[in-house]
Amino acid sequence: MNGSPPLVIVDNLTKHFPVTRGIIIQRKVGAVRAVDGISFTIDQGETLGLVGESGCGKTTAGRTLLGLYPATAGTVTIDGHNIRSAKGREMLLIRRIAQMIFQDPYASLNPRWTVHSIISEPLRVHHLFKTEAERVERVQELMGLVGLSGRLINRFPHEFSGGQRQRIGVARALASDPRFIVCDEPISALDVSIQAQVVNLLEDLQDRFGLTYLFIAHDLSMVRHICDRVAVMYLGLMAELADRNELYEHPLHPYTIALLSAVPVPDPRKDRARRRIILAGDVPSPINPPSGCRFHPRCPLADQQCSDEVPEWRLAAPSHWVACHKV
């Protein structure tokens, strides 16, 4: 948000999962084009929201971005380090400064480990403290940061509620003093009253440590609340990217417009007065995506050009990116 270069630069990131057949030697017979060439940057201290419906590739994008899935093409640079070419010590350094928070508070903590083992894993991997006593002290400090009593350090995950487990996950992500955290639907498995707890915690930590977030979510209301800029994905591609108020108040892409109109508003008078664009049909399969613009079979504005040509990813207004022939 100032003159310094972006912390994260994603250029043409692509991830195809091969569909194979064969008994020993596997032939590739097709590909799930989960992420098909997306580009964006995230500034230091900023929160970028990545939204879209299930199957749009947002989770795959987040995981490929951190190198958890090997990318098919494109580059990702985090704090000057190219994650695709990094090896050995450089890779370990990236693993230290870039972390991840997961969706499922039950699956994301090893059920056989104590809270101490879980939170101190990054400390052990990166040899951040010499003695066990120092590590215990650091783990208790981290637990305090996320609102858990340090006395619970030897408890197991099953003894905690969903919201508390999610905070253990946050403490683990913070352990190695990262600069960038990919938050993959960190609140969608939680109850409403607990969601607010976790969101407020993430914001407090950002203020305190100057963290940069990629916030992947499908809850458009929460994304508007927490993110500075928002990117909308559809079927493996970027549809639109803009500052949050610009995007929610002046959406350009027909998909964004429909998506926003479908979000219910917790206000009966307003909700019933809204004009809702009901999209026909479902999201097509990413194995055989539609030609041209991938949204054209469901788009109310589509014409011949939309089914023939892939729309260019371009600036339609200052810092407002969109991929649509009709804008």
Partner: peptide
Amino acid sequence: FVLAARATG
């Protein structure tokens, strides 16, 4: 939790 371990190196 395995992804988390890989993400941490």
